[in-house]
Amino acid sequence: MTIILTSLIFAALLGAILALIIGVAAKAFAVESDPRIETVTDMLPGANCGGCGYAGCADFAKAIVEGAASPSDCPVAPAGDSARIAEYLGITSEQKEKMVAVVRCSGSISVTVRSPYNGINDCRSAVLVAGGAKGCDYGCLGLASCARACPFDAIEIRDGLAVVHPELCVGCGKCVDICPKNLIVLVPASVDVHVYCNSPEKGSVKRKVCKTACIACRKCIKAADNAEQMTVKGFLIETNYDNPPLSDLVEKTGCPTTALRLASKHAAGEYDGVSK
């Protein structure tokens, strides 16, 4: 009986003393934190993708509350969400244009020359072996380094080619740094017409290794509403994203190699193997 009593009293005393210490410590060493940070964190998508440039959603929320970042810096949150955050904090947030990633290559296995490759299944390792097992020095290796890096599963490897699904892509830019061939760029989501080729080589050189390379024939420039809409860089044509062409340009041009494509149709796989 005494043993039980002693231990009960001892435990109660110990509990009381420790509670007192914790209570005092909580008051004395209290960290002032802004309760709004937690609320804003809850309003963010919670993907922790790092697309905003901060370490995660909580870090970004802190930056918003402190005024260092704008809610619209989050590439993932829909416009409504960032507007709601701005409203909650009583700040104004100008809307940024939504960006999506484009892999500037259309060289799937069926249209390109490739060597057998039996090494590590990673683009950044493969590129160390003879620049990757592809006839074209500039093309997509299709070993899915970008797809693995994508937190939103927006990149699909189809027939040895990385294809971005624009409706899933939020433009966080994680894939951009991963690609050893620097093929991926972020472009305004409103533009649908892209040149799916990144090789600055001469047309004849490109055609030897890839059926869908841009050969700079300038058909698209002639078909465009004004010549400014497409820009020529050496032997490669690019969409001018500051003055983009309309989606009907692809149909009007009838690109002989199908390098000029609509991102939406490219993602749906409507161009596979086409070459005139």
Binding site: G119, I120, R124, L128, V129
Partner: peptide, 13 residues
């Protein structure tokens, strides 16, 4: 195992 390729990658990175 492609050990040598792993090391090339590591050295490059």
């Amino acid at each position: 195992r492609p050990l040598n390729q792993h090391f090339k990658r590591a050295k490059a990175e």
